[in-house]
Design a protein around this nucleic acid. Structure first.
Lengths: 188, 188
DNA sequence: TTATTTATAACATACGTTCGTTATGCGTTT
DNA sequence: AAACGCATAACGAACGTATGTTATAAATAA
């Protein structure tokens, strides 16, 4: 009967590709035609898989929230010393730097979008952060759970600062700052 | 001859009001009609003061960069102890919290906008950060200048985390995190 | 065939921008 | 002083285009 296409699987593939597109242009500035072109399909195909532009954004956010940081814990080795565990987390974070930067930009878009629509609560975004926080608390085993928030704040700030185009010295600067964080938290 | 209106002065007033509008909706999502309505003028008047939508964004960014943090140093009292100076900076930052949050959102928009246009016109943004950094180094007199970057990263991360809707406990959480920062830097 | 995927063109609307017009107030002329 | 001219300020309708979306038909595989 139909073509051999796993509808749901292909939809998720397209979703993942949308992240980079949204992050590069912003939700409001990008057009459906540009999205379709970026995905290598036509607008008709795009609308075959997604009912609207708005739906792409919402599905993408939901997808990222569900995925969460499970792929980190899927391969996170345990470590005895606190500083080592902290380093493992940050190494993983740095290894997926561009991804988290894109995710940050998407959340800014989503924040503005949901604020505009008046649809107040984005329950799963809040749940996402609670879950992330709880999982990191369990893994890191820091003496003070507030330190976990501090690490998350640091990571977000790092992503943001690097948007402001630090140029060639960016990599060195990032390692310098992360070492500083580890040193500060380790001595405390 | 004309009506009694200081053209340049009025334009800057409009610019300042635009910050909140851009931050709430995003540059790509907001329309000139919405901007005009938000400013309480007609679209014709809006175009009398700004040649294009793009120009509003660019003038706004440039204006904010020029202003910089001079209004902080205009009233920043000196303090002997390092922790006190750090506290003064952060108190000022928290007092103007919403403003810096809006500025953050604007910079995200500007980043995407200039990346889209391909033109690397982020020169003054880079200069802005260098200037900010240098001024803060001079004021704070921290033993390690890298700590100043660390403070800036922390502030950006704080702004970002609070976009993700922390709800009622936000204020307490912010003070907790800032106290943590001060404690960590003071003991180092 | 038949059901599903894809592509193209068409549609209604919303967008950024322009235009013609009117209102306003100071300088000039009488 | 009064009347006029003139340049700015303000407005809102109108314009051309681009947008999100839909309709339609070809292509594909069972």
């Amino acid at each position: 009967m139909p073509k051999i296409v796993d509808h749901d699987r292909y939809r998720k593939e397209l979703l993942n590709q949308c992240l980079a597109l949204f992050a590069a242009q912003g939700y409001g500035s990008i057009t459906m035609r540009q999205i379709a072109q970026g995905l290598g399909v036509s607008t008709g195909t795009l609308y075959h898989y997604f009912p609207s532009k708005e739906s792409i954004l919402e599905q993408l956010v939901q997808d990222l929230c569900e995925q969460g940081i499970t792929d980190f814990f899927a391969q996170a080795p345990p470590a005895e010393r606190v500083g080592d565990r902290l380093r493992i987390v940050i190494e993983f974070f740095l290894a997926h730097y561009r991804f988290y930067q894109q995710q940050l930009l998407l959340w800014v878009d989503f924040h503005q979008h949901s604020q505009r629509k008046g649809t107040e609560r984005q329950a799963f975004l809040q749940r996402f952060w609670q879950r992330t926080h709880a999982q990191l608390v369990a893994y890191l085993q820091l003496p003070n759970p507030a330190h976990v928030d501090f690490v998350l704040v640091f990571m977000d700030g790092l992503l943001l600062q690097c948007l402001y185009e630090r140029g060639e010295a960016e990599a060195d600067w990032v390692t310098q700052q992360t070492e500083l964080l580890i040193a500060l938290l380790d001595s405390a």
